[in-house]
């Protein structure tokens, strides 16, 4: 039964996502080819990975798994069935004090078995006014552990307007998912520099992105 129901539910979820958002994938600087990748995206809504997943062409989607927080998704039977059987997520525990498994270890294992991942390096949903929150270090450690895997920035636009925090009826609005040029860890690059570069590569894909005009002024100002 499970073999039939899970893919069926997955298809229904994707149809629903299309009905509400008419989502379109924009491949801007990277091609939709079947390479092993980490798609790292901005995170503003629980539906984010569903949208990325829906926007991927089926051959890519088939072995792309979202990384999800075990602490949230394993609460309740329906939620844990959805995340495990339907979305086939890689579950990581975000609570550093109580966790038993190392999240980097868990994600590397999934990569070594040949799957691609959808990752939200901000860690939690961004509910503030800034386009991105500071990245957690996971992306850097994965880039070190699996240098052959491409790191593709993915900007999800508009989904936070579809279902703002605290609402339970989605508003149909057109969403886009923009896949950008891959970012690679350079030799000798330290964690902070790499994460800043990865973060700005992602932010540049946002339709609201405006290059900062004050960069020169701020570097020239006395410290």
């Amino acid at each position: 039964m499970g073999q039939i129901i899970s893919p069926l539910v997955a298809t229904l979820v994707r149809l629903f996502a299309r009905f509400i958002t008419a989502v379109r994938g924009i491949w801007d600087g990277v091609a939709p080819v079947d390479k092993q990748r980490i798609y790292y995206a901005n995170h503003a809504s629980h539906g984010d990975f569903i949208l990325v997943w829906t926007a991927l062409p089926p051959p890519l989607r088939r072995h792309t798994r979202p990384v999800a927080g075990a602490d949230y998704w394993l609460n309740g039977r329906l939620r844990s069935w959805l995340i495990r059987d339907v979305f086939k997520a890689v579950l990581v525990d975000r609570n550093a004090d109580t966790r038993q498994d190392d999240p980097i270890e868990t994600m590397s294992q999934a990569l070594h078995s040949g799957d691609s991942l959808i990752l939200f390096p901000e860690g939690t949903r961004n509910l503030g006014d800034q386009p991105l929150q500071p990245f957690k270090s996971g992306l850097f450690h994965l880039a070190q552990a699996c240098p052959e895997v491409e790191l593709v920035p993915v900007w999800i636009a508009n989904l936070n307007r579809v279902m703002p925090k605290g609402e339970f009826v989605p508003i149909p609005l057109i969403c886009t998912v923009t896949f950008g040029e891959p970012v690679a860890l350079e030799s000798g690059e330290d964690k902070a520099a790499f994460l800043a570069r990865a973060s700005s590569a992602l932010e540049r894909l946002s339709p609201d992105y405006e290059p900062a005009e004050t960069t020169l002024d701020s570097t020239e100002s006395p410290s």
Binding site: A22, I171, L173
Partner: peptide, 15 residues
């Protein structure tokens, strides 16, 4: 309507 509303100035209060 989905295309139109994507472009309007709706706010949280219009949900």
């Amino acid at each position: 309507l989905r295309e139109f509303v994507t472009l309007v100035n709706a706010r949280r209060a219009d949900h």
